[in-house]
């Protein structure tokens, strides 16, 4: 019995600690994401997709299908895996119907991210039809970033941003490291699923 007492003390202390200390935020990350609804003017630029084909951005984003847009780059370390996991998860939920939803990722590192690199990234996240990754000239990419109020002078300063296009053409702006389940919930909330 003697030998179990110190262990029991620790357990009691631990239980006490649990009840007193509230759940704390994660290491250096925002606690929740911010959700706002905005109106954006999409510039008429021609970008290039993972197959090297020219894509008119306005046509892609105003196709009538549900659309989501995020800004990432292929060698990104921390933020992009979280955002892309959200896309992978959504596509998994859509099953064979994945092309029903247009998921768009736009690179903020057009220097490095040529079509071959874009294709490899999509393969890494098991992307299915419906998820396109776009690059373009630096000036055109800058214009698109400005249009979405998501301009970063350098990719190292980028912030996690995802946009969902509402049925009325307005954009739901989700700022923060949104988890896969939160992203799915937002998508459903927009009435698009």
């Amino acid at each position: 019995m003697k030998y179990h007492l110190p262990w029991l003390n620790c357990l009691l202390l631990f239980a006490l600690v649990l009840t007193i200390c509230p759940a704390s935020p994660a290491v250096a990350a925002p606690v929740t994401y911010k959700r706002t609804v905005e109106k954006y003017q999409i510039p008429d630029v021609i970008l290039t997709n993972q197959f090297g084909k020219k894509v008119r951005l306005k046509t892609l984003l105003e196709s009538g299908r549900p659309v989501a847009v995020d800004f990432i780059y292929a060698t990104c370390t921390t933020i992009c895996p979280v955002l892309s996991a959200g896309y992978t998860n959504l596509q998994r939920k859509l099953g064979p119907d994945s092309a029903r939803v247009q998921l768009v990722s736009i690179t903020i590192d057009p220097e490095n991210d040529n079509p071959r690199v874009l294709k490899e990234y999509l393969q890494r996240y098991q992307a299915r039809p419906g998820w396109d990754f776009l690059t373009g000239s630096r000036k055109d990419i800058d214009r698109v970033m400005h249009a979405f109020d998501a301009y970063f002078r350098d990719k190292m300063d980028h912030k996690p941003l995802t946009f969902i296009r509402g049925a009325d053409g307005s954009w739901i702006r989700l700022y923060g490291l949104i988890s896969s389940s939160e992203f799915l919930a937002e998508y459903k909330k927009a009435g698009l699923l």
């Binding site: 250096a28 921390t78 896969s180």
Partner: peptide
């Protein structure tokens, strides 16, 4: 998720000394 999409190296980097990206440390 697949551990191959969320590798340790992608955030903690090859040296293991961590990274700063945007506002995430």
């Amino acid at each position: 998720v697949d551990g191959t999409s969320f590798t340790c190296v992608s955030c903690h980097l090859r040296s293991g000394l961590g990274s700063i990206e945007g506002e995430v440390i």
